[in-house]
Simulated assay, not measured.
Amino acid sequence: MIPYGRQEITQADIDAVIAVLQSDFLTQGPTVPQFEQAIADYCGVRHAVAMNSATSALHVACLALGLGAGDVLWTSPISFVASANCALYCGASVDFVDIDPLTYNLSVPALAEKLAQAEKVGRLPKIVVPVHLCGQSCDMAAIHQLAQQYGFKVIEDASHAIGGRYRDLPVGNCAYSDITVFSFHPVKIITTAEGGMAVTNQPALAERMALLRSHGITRDPAWMTHEPDGPWYYQQIALGFNYRMTDVQAALGLSQLSRLDEYVTERQAKAAYYNQALAELPIVLPWQHPDTYSAFHLYVIRLQLDQIRVSHRQVFEALRACGVGVNLHYIPIYSQPYYQQQGIAGAADYPQAELFYQCAITLPLYPNLSREQQEQVVVAIRDSVLA
């Protein structure tokens, strides 16, 4: 089975991890801050805070921005559930904004319309989380303009998008947001096995997130309520979590980061091959906004169901039967039973998300996917949609 995504682990990665295993530090040593600085330098941002997952990073990002009971967070319905769950962890509520029919990212016109309505009833969001689906940045300049107008904070969920660019600047530079979050899960652009990172240009936010990722404990006398009792002393000054990344993970991430641009170039090339090979079939290919350069974490096609004789499910199952490990990113979050139990509005409020879910299929795409494997995918798609 050709998987939809797959990590590449090289001898350099293995050597980097072994070096840490043979060192004095496995968890909180020098490698985590080295990885943080390397990510900050790559993105052109002032601060980076490493964590054990992007989910953890989203959680503490929300807390650092003061999200709590009585507040509301808006995000895209076409994302992994973590993009919304982070609000519930804080005791806040969640609402969704429909997607753009071309990019599948959060729709700016839909956001503007919903904000205008929310202002009238005094229910504006405290935080909006645009999700850079598949690795393509949202229209962050337009979202930033709305944030200035309506007073909400912005967390970019860039779990798919490290290595991508927006208006020729790296995703994660936070020019248009308060915080950006990356994921280093094995199927993402680079991996730390499990892991995530929050980046920001605001030192107070970085300090708060660093505190919350490690039990809310500080050894900095400047943060304490009184002079330290001695050199052993620490204080818990907030209710934090054990969200720390280890030196072992950071070593893998540092090694992988050296190949990040190469990986994105490979993904772009493989996406271009799909674009050419699938152009004549009754499917919609990924559209790229001219302001963006996608990291192409995912390659998503949409079936033109009115032009084929088979169903979405039949095509999906036929591809799996041919050894092509397709997937679907994502099931609309509002349709999940847990969210339905919370009284979240459903399909009628998000027509573009519904249309997407009814016909989307994620094809295999990763740096070491061979041309022969891509050809196998193309043949399988052609046979299944023209059946």
Score class of each variant (00 low, 15 high):
E8N: 09
I9F: 02
I9E: 01
Q11E: 13
A12L: 11
D13Q: 10
D15R: 12
I18Q: 01
I18N: 07
A19N: 01
A19D: 02
F25D: 14
L26D: 11
L26Y: 12
T27K: 14
Q28C: 14
G29L: 01
T31L: 06
V32A: 10
Q34H: 08
Q34D: 11
E36L: 05
Q37W: 09
Q37Y: 08
A40V: 10
A40L: 04
Y42A: 08
Y42C: 12
Y42Q: 07
C43Q: 04
G44M: 07
G44F: 07
G44L: 09
V45K: 04
V45Q: 02
R46T: 03
A48F: 04
A50K: 09
M51S: 06
N52A: 15
N52P: 02
A57F: 04
A57S: 03
C62G: 10
A64E: 04
L65I: 06
G66L: 13
G66H: 12
L67I: 01
G68F: 03
G70P: 00
D71S: 13
D71W: 08
L73T: 10
S76L: 12
S79W: 06
F80K: 12
V81G: 11
V81I: 13
A82Q: 14
A84G: 08
C86V: 08
C86I: 07
A87C: 06
G91A: 04
A92W: 01
A92R: 05
S93A: 10
S93C: 04
D95R: 10
F96S: 05
F96V: 08
V97M: 12
V97A: 10
I99E: 05
I99H: 10
L102K: 07
L102Y: 14
L102R: 08
L106Q: 13
L106M: 14
S107P: 13
A110S: 15
E113N: 13
L115V: 09
A118K: 02
E119R: 15
K120S: 14
V121C: 08
R123Y: 13
R123G: 12
R123F: 10
L124I: 01
